[in-house]
Design a protein around this nucleic acid. Structure first.
Length: 253
DNA sequence: CGATTTTGACCCGCGC
DNA sequence: GCGCGGGTCAAAATCG
């Protein structure tokens, strides 16, 4: 892969992630456990759940859907307000795959597993093992309704760079809805802007699990690729710049 | 032998 | 106050 291509895909991935983060999707029926980001999750105060935002959790395999839930604690009397990101990621897996592993490029260390009341499949608890001080935690559990869907809930923000950012880019670019993105390309500079706010209007996510299934379908994947290709090739400046870049990399031809 | 996973016990908040 | 349930700890087991 050329440097330019790498940069392009990286920018796509970064932009994609940040836009999704902004969508603040409300996952349906978020169970009280997920509000663990609220003060209840800090029952053991030794780990103060640090603040705010991240956009780098992404998963692998067949299809994913992300939903952010930024919980704001009620403002303290002194006016301080801690914010904790709850990011939910659905990953379609092989139903026969019993491992509760969602590969997202980060190193995770499992520290617990528990069977919860509302779901017969066990829930696994992970901490980020890449950096000892990283406060991010992850809960992974199969969907109660569809055992081929893994639901990973991320809490907090990584305080270190993504250890495998570039090698994981394709999975970053997994879609979050029915072809939600519009693409504008500025070929005068290697800059691509993905406008993911145009996802059919409402930022609400009526049925997250349904979307998970939809996203995982080959038809959807093909449609997304087709749309992206169409958008890219429809911009003459971009194709010219791409051709020039390719030619530069192939001096012998 | 160190790192990681497993798993039962424990802690703590919440509802009754 | 008590029981339930989610989350975490930590010793033992396993792995590379």
């Amino acid at each position: 892969m050329s440097e330019e291509n790498r940069r392009l895909t990286e920018m796509i991935a970064c932009l994609y992630g940040s836009q999704i983060t902004r969508q603040s999707l409300e996952s349906e029926g978020e169970p009280p456990a997920s509000t663990a980001a609220s003060p209840t999750s800090t029952k053991r105060s030794r780990e103060s759940m640090e603040t705010s935002n991240s956009g780098d959790a992404n998963s692998n395999k067949i299809g994913t859907v992300e939903a952010d839930h930024v919980d704001a604690q009620s403002p303290a009397s002194d006016g301080t307000c801690q914010r904790i990101v709850m990011k939910k990621v659905c990953t379609r897996i092989d139903p026969s795959d019993t491992s509760l592993v969602v590969k997202d490029g980060y190193q995770w260390r499992k520290y617990g597993q528990k069977v919860t009341r509302d779901n017969p499949s066990p829930r696994a608890y992970f901490r980020c093992a890449f950096a000892p001080s990283c406060p991010v935690k992850k809960k992974v559990q199969r969907s109660a309704e569809d055992s081929s869907v893994l639901e990973a809930t991320y809490e907090g923000e990584h305080n270190h760079p993504h250890p495998a950012r570039s090698s994981n880019l394709p999975s970053c670019a997994t879609p979050s809805g029915p072809v939600p993105c519009s693409i504008s390309i500025n070929s005068t500079r290697p800059t691509i802007t993905l406008d993911l706010t145009k996802n059919g209007g409402s930022a609400q996510q009526p049925d997250l699990k349904k979307v998970c299934r939809e996203v995982a379908s080959p038809e959807f994947q093909a449609a997304l690729v087709e749309q992206m290709a169409r958008e890219l090739t429809s911009d003459q400046k971009f194709t010219e710049a791409l051709a020039a870049a390719i030619l530069r990399k192939l001096p012998d031809y």
